[in-house]
Design a protein around this nucleic acid. Structure first.
Lengths: 232, 232
DNA sequence: GCTAATGTTAATGTTTGGTTAATGTTGCTT
DNA sequence: AAGCAACATTAACCAAACATTAACATTAGC
């Protein structure tokens, strides 16, 4: 098997180097960055199977970096390293979409188990074509990378991140059920009464945009989800 | 959203009860077992979205239970709770196929985040789709995913969740007895006088829909159940 | 003919969704 | 630091969809 690529962002040079070597010995392909800024640059230039981020870093902390990474890529697993054991930090990490959390000092073998478990998990997941970013929706054209939605080739409207992700998810299930739960867990990363209401607000916004083309419609399937119908 | 089912196996009755209540408050459907034996019995009798196992338990410890659970089900996520913080234990847990690991005392909010993260992860995984959702019933066509029923390819009618599930269950027993009890326990999740009457109301509704095709009929088998007859 | 089960319709109760506006939040600009 | 702009969440209100219960009629089976 091809060596898995890990992005390691750690500002302590000693600890960073040791951890990097340890991971290399265990057959990973490791890229080390010594701060959030550099970490993000390296992230953009390559494709990684996993990111290990130190939380406490100068200039740009691990959470901020994680948020930036998540904007570019919703899939890549993220593990946080932290010396602090504050509850708030852990919760913050999970909200940003962490896959796991490790307190320093930690046992290297435990880290290794976690890495393997996470990579294994990702391997078994079937990817719902995530690189696709251009969609034809009736007479609309959606570019989910630039977050542009244009009608009949006219001047495009800019969509907010949530609007865009939701429309994309609907488009990926064109004419089929897009379960509420799926959008909530994937886009909102939480599933409760309020996020659900928030989603409804976004559905209303999308309907407003899509009103221009009467062959395009978002239908509700009561209690289940929504369905983007495109009449031909 | 349907409440997620959690199997909680914890031998300390006080701690178990508190944790159970906490999870219930947070909208989970919790089954508490007070030892490994009982835990396994309950596991076999129901379908859970998550198992939380105490490691230290009399008769049957958490690892042994986890191994048994894994034999029956490779999918269900498992979280271990342990007072010990020994590396060996953690590794042992991961080997048995744990999804996460928590040291007592732990913060309840952290546990909650972990539970959410894990359940969310499962939601994203694509399940082996073995459930049929398209049925031909005489000149009707039922799509139980979109909850559509169309007659002779005409514009489909929308069915309510209960209507749809009931018709699907009848269709699965086409020309054969569909026992009352089956529908009541599977669809209504309860079997008493009122749910039974409710079901009769739904049978009436379905009959109204199916009236269009005189070759299709729902017959009653007194005291037993119903039978969806399709004359050819 | 009597009783329990079923058929049917309508009323009542409950949950979910549609929509608009107010309120938070965050990062950026001046 | 104040204020702005963009976005997201929460609130509030209403409507629609759905489910249950009630009430009364009918039927099966003894």
């Amino acid at each position: 098997m091809e060596a898995k690529k890990i992005l390691l962002v750690e500002d302590d040079p000693n600890f960073g180097a040791i951890l990097k070597d340890y991971l290399i010995i265990n057959d990973f392909d490791v890229t080390l960055a010594k701060n959030g800024m550099e970490g993000f640059e390296k992230f953009k230039k390559d494709t990684f199977d996993l990111c290990i981020l130190d939380v406490m870093m100068p200039y740009k902390d691990g959470y901020t970096l994680a948020r930036e990474i998540r904007e570019k890529n919703q899939e890549v697993p993220i593990i946080f390293l932290t010396a602090k054991t504050l509850k708030e930090d852990v919760l913050k990490g999970y909200k940003v979409g962490a896959d796991d959390y490790l307190n320093k000092p930690f046992d290297s073998e435990v880290l290794l188990m976690k890495i393997k478990a996470i990579i294994q998990r990702k391997a078994t997941e079937v990817k719902p074509d995530n690189n696709k970013f251009e969609f034809i929706i009736g007479s609309f054209h959606l570019n989910s990378k630039l977050r542009f939605l244009s009608f009949n080739g006219q001047e495009p409207v800019k969509l907010s991140p949530k609007e865009c992700e939701l429309l994309k998810m609907l488009a990926l299930h064109e004419n089929d059920l897009m379960p509420r739960e799926l959008a909530l867990t994937k886009i909102w990363r939480d599933d409760n009464y309020f996020t659900s209401r928030s989603m409804d607000v976004y559905i209303a916004k999308l309907r407003k945009y899509l009103k221009q083309d009467e062959n395009v419609e978002i239908l509700n399937i009561h209690g289940e989800g929504f369905r983007l119908v495109i009449k031909k």
